[in-house]
């Protein structure tokens, strides 16, 4: 498990360092994920090593958003005053974005004869 964690942290560290060094407009872990994809493609041993830990983390991904979510307590004043409009804006745009994104995907897949099998 230590080696799996080490491999994951090394990818994250490389991602963070590269993003800072080059001033890229994306988060370090996202670049780290790309690096991990490349590494997993190169080595089946790494894949076998990382899989159990990665699966465990992914299975509990929701938990990791709780600490940031509790940050809601610091904004009680503005959420009390403007909470309604803010919530409706988030609700409306999220529903629209999911619908438009999914319908676009399906339409372009149909047009280009792209089927999943």
């Amino acid at each position: 498990m230590i080696h799996a964690l080490l491999a994951i942290l090394l990818c994250q560290l490389a991602g963070e360092a590269t993003v800072r060094a080059l001033g890229l407009p994306l988060p370090g872990p996202v670049l780290g994920m790309v690096l991990m994809v490349l590494a997993l493609r190169l080595s089946h041993r790494l894949m076998a090593l990382v899989t159990p830990l990665a699966r465990g983390l992914l299975a509990n991904m929701s938990l990791l958003f709780v600490p940031a979510g509790v940050g809601v307590v610091g904004h009680a004043a503005i959420l009390g005053a403007q909470g309604g409009p803010l919530f409706l804006a988030l609700l409306g745009s999220t529903v629209l974005a999911i619908a438009v994104g999914a319908l676009t995907f399906a339409a372009v897949a149909r047009l280009t004869g792209n089927r999943d099998d």
Partner: peptide, 28 residues
Amino acid sequence: GPVTISLALPLCENLPRIRRAALPMLAA
């Protein structure tokens, strides 16, 4: 951070399907 890196695993396992779906993905 580590869970974002871990997303590489499902990505890798689905890489051929993802490659085939490049066009619909870009549009969506």
